[in-house]
Write a protein that binds this DNA or RNA. Structure first.
Lengths: 191, 191
DNA sequence: CCAAGGATTGAATGCTGGTTCAATCCTTGC
DNA sequence: GCAAGGATTGAACCAGCATTCAATCCTTGG
């Protein structure tokens, strides 16, 4: 029974994620999520007090997965320059793999309560990047700078640069290398 | 009569802008806009077919004003580095002057049809910046790069870096200089 | 096998806020 | 001064969708 409960909860989240990946947040009525999860509309409310709470958790889960993937990729590299290359490759590569989902997570209009979750998500990226930048500055690989501001600006640059390609569904083959070059310059990586 | 008509239209737009500057897009019900403009709710629909159309125009007007101000400031400068300093100073300065409005124009959740207008707005900034970057590359001040990608990424960086300060209502005194330094590095301005 | 307590159902409810429209009021050209 | 045509009004309407809840169905401990 306990197991069935948790399973339902998982199924709801998975269903919501699936619909987001196919039709965006716009397609995520509570009824649609319930149907895909295989239960009645009202049952969703046994697991989540409101729709916003449900999607806050959906965003949290999906975002954490992304941040983790990026963090893991960056951790394999030694220099700040390589770490940031890995961040861009992973972030952009995964986004282009599931463009609809990436758009929903990054930029699609959503309930303000869910939007707040998005700030947390971006903040997590910024902190991850800030850590690598701070280390690079500390060991002299990068010039002195405010790691937090640099990281915040880079997150914005990354997100903005992806919105066009995500809307179009594909990126030109040189988008990612060009973005890496931009970011290396912005960090002050010596050429 | 014709004059009265145009005047009403202007008053509606001004009222919408005023409410946005005070309470954000969230506070902009059609009824509230009509009341502040001094006419009945229904009369708004003599001037705009839908609320989304009204706000698309409001966004267009306000955004154009911002882009023009930035363009004017940049045009006074000679080098790409100085032009970009002027862009940041003007953009950030104006945003911090009317933080609520800036937040609404940049980031607040809005109707998708209005959101589309936002893309146009960001595109306008990107094109403005891309022009200066391309000129800088052409005359050797800046290293070779894709001016459009650089410009898009810079717009994202600028916007993201402003969201925190806008939410807080103020920016630390070194935010703008630090942002200028970041952007100079990103462009490859030689130190 | 049975009753109690909780889970599930899905149609009905309710709210919010954009949109409409019949009645009324002005303006204008004659 | 007056009729016609358009502007204005604002209360009523409506759609969409989150949320609720009384009825029903399972699970489970005895």
């Amino acid at each position: 029974m306990r197991a069935r409960l948790t399973a339902s909860r998982e199924r709801i989240i998975a269903a919501a994620l699936g619909i987001m990946a196919e039709h965006g947040y716009a397609g995520c009525s509570v009824a649609a999520v319930a149907e895909r999860a295989g239960l009645a509309t009202g049952s969703v409310y046994r697991h989540f007090p409101t729709k916003a709470d449900l999607f806050a958790e959906v965003f949290r889960t999906a975002s954490q997965r992304e941040v983790d993937a990026v963090a893991r990729a960056a951790a394999l590299e030694a220099t700040a320059a390589e770490q940031m290359s890995a961040v861009v490759q992973t972030f952009a590569g995964r986004a282009l793999q599931s463009p609809r989902l990436a758009y929903a997570l990054l930029a699609e209009p959503v309930d303000p309560a869910v939007d707040a979750q998005r700030l947390v998500f971006r903040r997590a990226y910024a902190e991850l990047i800030a850590g690598h930048v701070a280390a690079g500055v500390a060991n002299g690989e990068l010039p002195p700078q405010n790691p937090d501001l640099t990281a915040t600006a880079l997150v914005g640059a990354l997100a903005e640069a992806m919105v066009g390609p995500l809307a179009a569904g594909v990126a030109g083959p040189d988008t990612i290398p060009a973005l890496i070059a931009f970011i290396h310059r912005a960090l002050g990586v010596s050429p």
